[in-house]
Design a protein around this nucleic acid. Sequence first.
RNA 1: GGGCGGAUAGCUCAGAUGGGAGAGCGCAGCCCUUACAAGGCUGAGGUCACAGGUUCGAAACCUGUUCCGCCCACCA
Length: 941
Amino acid sequence: MHKEEISIPETYKPDEVETKLYKFWEENEYFKPDEDLSKPSFCIVIPPPNVTGTLHMGHALNATLQDVLIRWKRMLGFNALWLPGTDHAGIATQNVVERQLLQEGLDRYTLGRDEFLKKVWQWKEACGGRIIKQLKRLGSSCDWSRLRFTMDGGLSKAVKEVFLKLFEEGLVYRDLRLINWCPRCHTALSDLEVEHEETEGKLYYIKYPLKEAPSQYITVATTRPETMLGDTAVAVNPEDKRYKDFIGKTLILPLINREIPVISDSAVDMEFGTGAVKVTPSHDFNDAEIAQRHNLPYVCIMDEDGKMTDEAGPYKGLDRYKAREKIINDLKELELLEKIEKHKHAVGHCYRCKTTIEPFQTVQWFVKIKPLAEPAVKVVEEGKIRFIPESWVNNYYAWMRDIRDWCISRQLWWGHRIPVWYCADCKTEKGIKQGDLIEIRFYKPIKINGKEIWSGTYTELRQLGVSKEEIEQKAKIIKITIEVKPIAGKEDVKTCPYCGSSELVQDPDVLDTWFSSALWPFSTLGWPDETEDLKRFYPTDVLVTGFDIIFFWVARMIMMGLKFMNDIPFKDVYIHALVRDSKGQKMSKSKGNVIDPLVMIEKYGSDAFRFTLAAFAAQGRDIKFSEERVEGYRRFINKIWNAMKYMMGFYHLRTKESLSIEDVKSPENRWLLSKLSDAIAETNSALHSYRFNDAASAIYQFLWHEFCDWFIEFSKVVLYGDGDKEETVNCLFFAFENVLKLLHPFMPFVTEEIWLNILKKPQSIMISPYPTTELIGKDEEALQKMEYVIDAISGIRSIRGELNIPPSLNLDVYIKTLTNEAEEVLRWGAKFILKLARVSQLNISKDIERERGSAISVKRGFEIYIPVKDLIDIEQEKKRLQKELVKTEQDINFLNKKLMNEDFIKNAPKDVVQKDKEKYEELLVRNDKIKENLKILEELG
RNA sequence: GGGCGGAUAGCUCAGAUGGGAGAGCGCAGCCCUUACAAGGCUGAGGUCACAGGUUCGAAACCUGUUCCGCCCACCA
């Protein structure tokens, strides 16, 4: 083997190396699966981060774990594809761009829909790639040539296809009902997008006088007095004796003097408040249900801005909170406010902007979810999809069982526009012209013939000469009522299929962002086309994600995958924890406790950072991130680097690339390969069951403590002294290279740097085969043998350390062996003992007479004596032995009790009993020796 | 109101199917030994939240309690 001169940098510099190597990998297309179809495939689709996103700890953890898996599988010989992409993130992105416009003094309505969308795309092109760059910085080995975006042509095609199919089957439908409305974002939200937060509020007790006898009244309790303007009844429980006589009577709604009935409904809780509930069908979900049952009218008193409508009489135009204030004051004046109590209750907030949501009655699109949910539950029950950790399936089932129809339309501009059109000229069954039912409001008035027009029906506006385009562009809200028949189409519908009219308006709404993400596992692989990728990689193998989007995303992917691919989208769902700060608090900008992954990478390097995340990723628990741990793993890298530097001094002696246990003779070398074998086995098995932390620690433990602390020290004895240098060097390199490969999925950069640029391997480490144990083998006998040597060294060191014997002192050590095996092995290992325990003279024999006044250490098979009477304080050694005596005696008692227990002997497995017996015998011997020595020391002292 | 998770060394956490408790950091002592002081060696430190139970044997399994954290839910 030709060995050229290699210059090795004194220290490892992550920042230089990482960018260089990432470029190298990308240029060589190592991230792409190859075309070899005989290899099994392994696929992960990335949970697409928002285009607006910047890499946070959650992304970093998520990406690290996926990269560990994909690199591991790739090295195991799989055709591995990690498919990356980003999500258009409807509301979030629209908000970002709108905020930007605001700084320029613009808003989206002034720009119009098309212009606004152009701006968003521009923004996406300019800034949307940021998170991709950051993922690369982390070392993610995604196949970037397959990068997807949820608004790409292909994915949009998939979205339309799915919508149309569901529409045709009646699984998407339009309905007029109460939905969650964000008055700031001006859009409907699904139930999931509402965050409920426990809030300290007030409970207002308001008197509603009886019409026939105004001195009598019913008191209702409410947290939202402003909604009383929309009351159309007061409900009491039919069982409630207090109100028995009121049922059926009429009350006068204060402030606006509407006559409303007292009704009875069993949904009313007699215990709460006064037992009488005001019913506001237009602004409360419960009340809407009561209204359905009792056929109550809906009075809408709040508009889409959260301001009071015409129906609110004197309160018209007031903001909802201002109206509340005024109403309370007015009620006080009328002496109709009985009392105000403090009251805790859950208030819903918009998950994007935190504004309090408002139940609002509008026409929206929904997905009928039960028929989709049932099969999705079944595949999990049948074990076709596995959740890891398993405990999450309960959450999944619970949600899926009580699932309600999914509101998918959003009153936004950025997103997949609903592929549905409405004809303005058709007559409906009710005989009204549809066009009249399409009502338009403008954000800024348009001028026609010098007249300012703010709003009108579609037909009116067209008659006034407003163009279709202008309506689409400038309209703030286009209200299309439920009576209008939707015409769905893959392509733009230009003429009405019923009447041939060209007066068609496209539904102004876009789809919930999560609608397109639900298709992610197959839309990214090319569906609806039957692509090669789809055949090869669907179903994907594992989904790695956080628990916060199990409902938003995971559940919906399962439903859609089953519906449109007739197959599960992934086999395993690995749910990882949330990354919190070191105090266990959720990281958030407002708390100022956010740790930026990129700062960590800059300070410590990507490898150290990734390793930290993996080492923290124990199942089922949140991660309290601590920077000190990252620092610790940076030192680990330093350790690796230094070990490498030592080894490279002997590189020229290397003769073999590959070894198995049969190829080596010397016990310490066989010991090393056996330990390596264990580390390999543990790493693989841990990764198989997603125990990332166990895998990380197995590698760390082996590399630092077994390889560096023990083996390198053994090797010095041979390499700086006598012995089979060649074999030792071969073992050093073989083990080191294997552990580099083991480590590569966790620390891709430093391993590659050493592999390629120090060891001068011809090919990247990322496509080298991952170590498996069968090629190396294990030698139990060598492990046993080395245990004698290691015990001896530890025993001497221990005496040294505890008795504070300075290393400069010459140390004579006597080892009395009790067995032939011990004697043979220790004589062989004397060279190691001498050097590693810094012994100047070592005598090993069966018939060693202990010198009076020796420090003693009793090991399995031998005893160590160190004559110390001239060296140290005998009192100290006595103390040391007494301490040990206490320990052994405790142990003996414990084992004795156990072994005297007949039930234990009878019931415990034989090997457990056997092991305890052996331990017991050993302890007895040790105990005797210690006692003996103590006696001698006593005599001396 | 329902459900889930946690409580183990001073700190942060491991302990997969039950066989006398581990790591990293921190702490104490000794050491610049020719890879590494970003290091080596040696130590100290734990009634595994509490109370019962199952078992020959429990940190682990079961029941209850306390304290934290999270998710879901239309109590106005």
